[in-house]
Design a protein around this nucleic acid. Sequence first.
DNA 1: TTTATTACTATCAATTCGATAGTAATACTT
DNA 2: AAGTATTACTATCGAATTGATAGTAATAAA
Lengths: 141, 141
Amino acid sequence: MKNNFRSGCPIASTLDIIGDKWSLLVLRDMLLHHKMTFKEFSSSEEQIAPSILSARLKLLTSYRLITRQKQENNKKENIYLLTEKAIDLSSILIDISMWGDKYLREFNQIDNIDGLKSDRSLIIKTIKERYKSMLQNVAIC
Amino acid sequence: MKNNFRSGCPIASTLDIIGDKWSLLVLRDMLLHHKMTFKEFSSSEEQIAPSILSARLKLLTSYRLITRQKQENNKKENIYLLTEKAIDLSSILIDISMWGDKYLREFNQIDNIDGLKSDRSLIIKTIKERYKSMLQNVAIC
DNA sequence: TTTATTACTATCAATTCGATAGTAATACTT
DNA sequence: AAGTATTACTATCGAATTGATAGTAATAAA
């Protein structure tokens, strides 16, 4: 992992890691849809190319936003899981979702997301809790 | 402006507009540092190339996140100002900043931002108010 | 034991990035 | 009024990245 941060600005530095069109979508799939495998990420509506997905997973792993493990009963599938620091991106993902929901309808037909209607901090709390409780049920080795 | 949104997902759609390494930095300069001109954006620490800056300003204008105007007494300088919908990205920018501040110190030397220490919603409120009050003092024609 | 699936890597054309130079219009200086 | 400087770009072009597709090795399922 080469250190090519553009500056010491925390915003610029964060964008140096997740500031692209795909990283946050992979994190969305993990956090909101509990996806865990290469196959599942590949099957998303947005159709990420395998070479790009592979590169993103490596990058996110190198910055310890995700881990790569295997389940005891399956030596083929890699299981990607979010670390605490990635789970802490929940608020950003939710805000991005809410902003798009509110402001982009004049440019694109935006899906109506049910869970987006209630209170922001409750949504974020629920999402984090759900992800963490899902983690309990994944038997990794 | 070609409609190439990847899906109806509000997160994906938002990233289709501001999901790159530069757009949010320009918005940061406008919102947090009250920068308004091509020259000022060019002079940022991260050194955006003029061709990229020009493209980003056009894109952000086309999605009405910013406006381009001139001041009465200066026919040379273009004054770029944020619209309400871009000002509403404040919370995302602040969260990104706080996340980087908290989690990236092991990978990069992150600047200490004074204003980041107090309460999140107060910070966001203050930033929005400051920007809007600055707008009052810009005499555009 | 054959077939299917998974998680990739390889390839390569197409697009985008980014450094630098150049230009037209306006403003400033003398 | 003339020359210089500044501003906001555009143009260029090599480098880097993206993205579509094909291929492969390991494991799992039939």
